[in-house]
Amino acid sequence: MPAGYTREIPQRYRLEAGKCKKCGAVHFPQRLACACGSKDTEPYVLPSTGKIATYSVVRVGPSDFMDLVPYVVAVVELDDGTKLTCQVADAAPEEVSVGTPVTLEFRKVNQVGGHGIIKYGYKAVLDRFVE
């Protein structure tokens, strides 16, 4: 059922998050309650640039991701300090290290065989314009 996928579109396509009005904590995805006790949050859009906080290279992956193996996955720390997990696309493992600057791009993240819906979302990419 694509209902669960559709529900996540604002987060996955547009990086829509939430911010606590009381303590300023950023929640991705948006939450009903903040750890500070406040239930007053407002919409907030994450920046799309940041750096690699940590990473790994998946060499044995789920069959849905077989076409990508080996692929780099990372925790990315965005410019505002928010962290998220995603793949690093088009990157050879040796190109990635902690601190490497990245930008989030719109990519296909997964698809259910040749029949199901195509699942899109964000992936990090390295700066491709450096000399």
Binding site: V60, P62, D64, Y71, V73, A74, G121
Partner: peptide, 14 residues
């Protein structure tokens, strides 16, 4: 969703 496996999560901690 992003293809992260359990070994990869612990690998990132490592």
């Amino acid at each position: 969703y992003h293809g992260v496996t359990f070994p990869a999560l612990y690998a990132m901690m490592a």
